[in-house]
């Protein structure tokens, strides 16, 4: 059978979301960003929100998220995405405004902006990729790096007496009155992807229903930074990252 006989609309069981364009992604093979991007594109499309979406990209690997998802984007300074999104939402209250940030951006340099946007209950959704490392700059220690985990700036493993402890920013944010939904998910299995999709969709709906801030933490792999094969990174994540950062809702109001 010729391949063109197989590729017919009536045979279609799955397609890439139309808002995810054909630009070649700069992400490493095995990286979680690709799946997370696909989910975001898919949800905006399904919700019919393209014309009313303002997305905010961070500094870090996802800085170029704007190259792949065909909605309007604002690229924020390092850590400042929640402040940028605050204004975008307050000035455009009927639009869907979300940030997409990594752990260094959200939980180190941008901790103040993150906490205060959540504490004000800004009607935005924060998608938080937690892979315990700085990917873009070459694998340095992040606030969420695990104890004993090796990075190029803690080459003998993270030591609490020198580097403090893995930061549970999700738990911190769940304590704030301004957040309505804080959940921790992953995208390493089809089941996990389905759950994360529901979580992001719920976050976006919360934003549109003015329920407060939603935080969707996605515990992710950085197999390049972790210096592992994608398969091994998934296993390592389940065994180590999930032990420190357990899956599930931290808050759901």
């Amino acid at each position: 059978m010729d391949v063109n006989e197989i590729i017919k609309p009536e045979n279609l069981v799955y397609r890439k979301p139309t808002l995810l364009n054909d630009n070649t992604m700069h992400y490493c093979p095995g990286c979680s960003h690709g799946v997370a991007h696909k989910l975001v594109a898919e949800i905006i499309e399904e919700m019919g929100m393209m014309e009313n979406t303002i997305a905010v990209s961070p500094v870090g690997c996802a800085v170029f998220a704007y190259n792949y998802i065909d909605v309007d984007w604002i690229q924020a300074a390092h850590g400042r995405a929640p402040a940028v999104a605050t204004a975008a939402k307050r000035l455009n209250p009927h639009k869907l405004v979300f940030t997409y940030q990594g752990d260094g951006d959200l939980a180190a340099i941008g901790t103040a902006e993150t906490i205060h946007a959540c504490n004000r209950g800004e009607n935005i959704t924060i998608i938080f990729i937690n892979n315990g490392i700085y990917g873009m700059t070459g694998g340095q220690m992040a606030p969420t790096t695990l104890e004993g985990m090796v990075t190029v700036t803690c080459p003998f493993g993270r030591k609490p007496e020198l580097n403090g402890y893995p930061l549970h920013i999700g738990e911190l944010l769940a304590k704030l009155k301004g957040t309505c939904y804080v959940t921790r998910q992953s995208v390493h299995t089809p089941a996990a992807i389905r759950k994360t999709k529901k979580a992001i969709m719920k976050g976006f709906e919360n934003s549109m229903n003015k329920k407060g801030t939603s935080v969707i933490e996605i515990v992710s792999t950085c197999n390049t930074g972790w210096k592992m094969s994608p398969d091994k990174a998934n296993v390592w994540m389940e065994e180590n990252m999930f032990a420190e950062y357990p899956m599930g809702d931290l808050k759901n109001e």
Binding site: I54, V56, I74, R80, A83, V84, A87, A88, L91, N92
Partner: peptide, 9 residues
Amino acid sequence: NMVYGGACC
């Protein structure tokens, strides 16, 4: 950065 966000819109 709020000014930046608003100006972007």
